[in-house]
Amino acid sequence: MMKFRKTKCGAALLGAALALGGLSAQATTPQAQLQRWQEAAGQAGQAARGQEFFGRRHGGEWSCASCHGQVPTVPNRHASTGKSIAPLAPAFHAERFTDSAKADKWFKRNCKDVLSRECTALEKADVLAFLIGLK
């Protein structure tokens, strides 16, 4: 078993490691998420393009709307499991897009279901611009 000496430097390193480890699940806002994906894409997300993307099947069985509803402002059910899904639009469910790790996880998973690949940063920005615009 390894022994660690208690030092100021060791405590500082441990504190820094813990702080960095928590960054992936850091609280955020839908607008900050949109900004992050727009910066990664190098252009602004467009709500109209996001709405079209959200409702379209991309060569597969499902679209985003298959589980979240064509207008994702009310609860819906997962297309295959029947599990209840809270509204996706942030104005109708305050917790949406307020955790970076969760947003990344669900975009990755759902994009693979809908597109058979991960979404691009621009696709994420477009969809989120659409969702933020729903009031």
Rank of each mutant, 00 (worst) to 15 (best):
F97P: 02
R56Q: 14
F97V: 11
V74N: 12
R77N: 06
G82I: 13
H93M: 09
H68I: 07
G82N: 10
H68Q: 01
H58V: 03
H68D: 01
P72W: 03
N76F: 14
W62E: 03
T81Y: 08
T98S: 10
H93V: 02
T73K: 02
A65P: 08
W62N: 04
A65C: 11
N76P: 04
V74D: 13
S63N: 04
G60S: 13
K83H: 06
I85C: 02
A101L: 14
G60N: 12
G60Q: 13
G69I: 10
N76V: 06
W62K: 08
A65D: 07
P87H: 01
A65N: 09
P87S: 08
P72R: 00
H58Q: 14
C67G: 05
A65Y: 08
T73I: 15
S66M: 02
L88A: 05
A89L: 01
R57V: 10
N76L: 04
F97W: 07
R77P: 00
R57K: 15
G69C: 09
A94N: 09
P87G: 09
R96P: 02
G82L: 06
A65S: 15
A94Y: 05
H58W: 14
L88W: 03
Q70E: 15
I85R: 08
G59D: 09
S80C: 01
A89M: 03
S100I: 15
G69A: 08
G69N: 03
A94G: 07
N76K: 09
S100A: 15
P87Q: 04
S84E: 14
G82H: 07
S100K: 11
L88V: 03
A86W: 00
G69V: 09
D99W: 02
W62Q: 04
V71E: 10
T98A: 03
T81A: 03
H93W: 06
H58T: 07
T81S: 15
E61N: 12
V74T: 15
Q70G: 12
P75N: 06
D99L: 05
V71W: 10
F92A: 10
C64F: 05
P90C: 04
W62T: 07
S66N: 05
K83Q: 11
P75T: 11
P87A: 11
K83M: 09
V74P: 01
H78S: 07
S80K: 14
Q70M: 14
W62I: 05
W62F: 15
G82F: 07
R57E: 11
D99G: 04
S66G: 05
E61T: 11
P87D: 05
G69F: 12
P90R: 00
C67W: 01
A91L: 04
